[in-house]
């Protein structure tokens, strides 16, 4: 069983012939949230570690979108920052196009190929810079255009590409609405001709009609430029629209990883099912929803065994004691799931 499990988490799973764009191998990130030394000594307590991400493995094939979904505190945004090198991993590794990420980050030519889009359109643009300078920053940093005229032409092209006017470059961010700012963020990200884009909740601060604009724009750009996306969201409906593969995270771990259609049609992990249950029913079918009970525990002191067991309707003694590994699910071998109940066939319903 153990061998199967290890093969199952093999990060090359599902990659294309050219090798995946990005892989993570059991990557973890812990934050020291201890109180200051003196206070700690007086209270006689040890160090406290917040295990924001605790062993996550996945691969993203070129030109595809992998989405990570989960509730706040599940570690999805930390994964986003790990794979662009904003945080060094506490354990495990990340490879970008076959090369160790830390190494790749040291080379401008490699760094140029990865970019990030952030959640908050009001904090992601420097309020003191003109839009043209914001978008031109990566161009200047990587020396992608030499003369002023070339830079200006490229900025104008990028602004047009994201649906803004080249004249908007002379304005400051506060002159734009949330959706327009997110377009500026996208233009900045595209300005270094990246191949891999990490999108951390790019639409969750936007109104729904604007969200549709941004999602459509991101899809268009992916089709046109062959971009690879790591898409972070808490919104399953949004994730369904953009993803090729979807990973569901809970308390710093992946609990299910599957092709998007498989995941939405036949969710396997009880937590995935609970998340789907929680989505309000717009089609008004009159379906009675059964909300999952309990709340997300603290990642400082996660439950033993399977982190979901205190809320899980299928939990038994094994779930409390033994941490499940990601293995192919019975019935849907495309799905990797970390659940004893699925493994034992107790989830048949």
């Amino acid at each position: 069983m153990r061998d199967v499990a290890i093969q199952g988490v093999s990060p090359t799973f599902g990659s294309t012939g050219a090798g995946p764009m990005l892989e993570t191998h059991d990557v973890a990130r812990h934050f020291d949230v201890s109180r200051p030394l003196v206070q700690r000594l007086m209270a006689g307590e040890g160090r406290r570690l917040l295990r924001a991400v605790d062993g996550v493995s996945f691969a993203i094939a070129r030109g595809t979108t992998l989405s990570l979904v989960g509730e706040s505190g599940c570690g999805k945004s930390t994964v986003a920052r790990l794979v662009v090198g904003l945080y060094p991993p506490s354990r495990g590794g990340v490879t970008f196009d076959g090369q160790d990420l830390a190494q790749a980050r040291r080379e401008a030519a490699q760094r140029r190929r990865m970019q990030m889009i952030f959640q908050d359109p009001y904090a992601s643009l420097n309020p003191r810079w003109r839009v043209a300078d914001i978008i031109a920053e990566p161009i200047r940093a990587f020396g992608l255009a030499q003369t002023r005229a070339q830079i200006e032409a490229r900025v104008a092209e990028l602004l047009t590409q994201v649906g803004l006017s080249p004249l908007d470059g002379q304005k400051f961010p506060h002159e734009f609405s949330g959706g327009q700012r997110q377009r500026i963020s996208i233009a900045r990200a595209l300005s270094s001709n990246p191949e891999f884009l990490v999108c951390d909740e790019p639409t969750s601060a936007l109104d729904v009609s604007v969200q549709a604009q941004i999602l459509n724009l991101m899809k268009d750009l992916q089709a046109r430029l062959g971009l690879t996306y790591l898409f972070i969201s808490h919104n399953l409906a949004v994730v369904r629209q953009v993803s090729d593969r979807v990973g569901v995270m809970y308390l710093g771990r992946l609990v299910e990883l599957a092709p998007a259609e498989t995941l939405f049609e036949t969710p396997r992990h009880p937590y995935t099912k609970a998340l789907m249950e929680a989505i309000p029913d717009l089609e008004m079918t009159g379906r009675q929803r059964i909300p999952v009970g309990g709340e997300v525990p603290s990642p400082i002191d996660p439950p033993s065994g399977c982190p979901f067991h205190p809320r899980c309707p299928l939990a038994n003694d094994r779930c409390k004691a033994e941490r499940p590994e990601m293995i192919p699910a019975r019935g849907t071998p495309q799905t990797l799931v970390a659940c004893h109940a699925v493994e034992e066939g107790r989830d048949a319903a």
């Binding site: 904090a123 992601s124 003191r128």
Partner: peptide, 24 residues
């Protein structure tokens, strides 16, 4: 996040301090 965006590009710390943080 604008500082993080600059870090993703690989702008040096000194440069971020002076051109991004300082004006704000």
């Amino acid at each position: 996040e604008y500082v993080q965006a600059a870090r993703v590009i690989g702008i040096s710390r000194a440069r971020i301090m002076v051109s991004h943080v300082l004006p704000n």
